[in-house]
């Protein structure tokens, strides 16, 4: 028997899957049915969507906010240059 009424635990999995893949229509229907009646899960789905969006900006923001170094040290560049010269032989 096909389980149409999903639980909140099911929704945590299906909503995550919806971020990564296209949901089959049965799962999509099941999710929408549950979300229609469950405010907690509606909030949950919007929050994991927010995290997904935030992660897309992560690299730029970490640099922009000064949370990672912007430059490779002069010493490291010199070391790599020497190794490249050695390979050229």
């Amino acid at each position: 028997m096909i389980k149409m009424m999903l639980s909140c635990k099911d929704i945590s999995e299906v909503a995550s899957l919806a971020i990564d893949e296209t949901l089959p229509w049965r799962k999509r229907m099941g999710m929408h049915l549950h979300l229609f009646i469950c405010k907690h899960c509606r909030t949950y789905v919007s929050q994991i969507g927010f995290i997904h969006r935030a992660l897309h900006h992560r690299s730029d923001e970490l640099v922009h906010m000064g949370l990672v170094e912007r430059t490779l040290s002069v010493e490291a560049k010199e070391k790599i240059r020497e190794k490249l010269e050695q390979q050229k032989g």
């Binding site: 690299s59 640099v63 990672v68 170094e69 490779l72 560049k77 490249l84 050229k88």
Partner: peptide, 24 residues
């Protein structure tokens, strides 16, 4: 010339690796 790569691309490659690995 590969010996110019560290100066030309080193910083942007390093930033990408650092953001990804969070270890200098």
């Amino acid at each position: 010339d590969p010996s110019t790569w560290p100066d030309r691309y080193g910083d942007s490659l390093y930033r990408h690796a650092l953001v990804r690995l969070r270890n200098k």
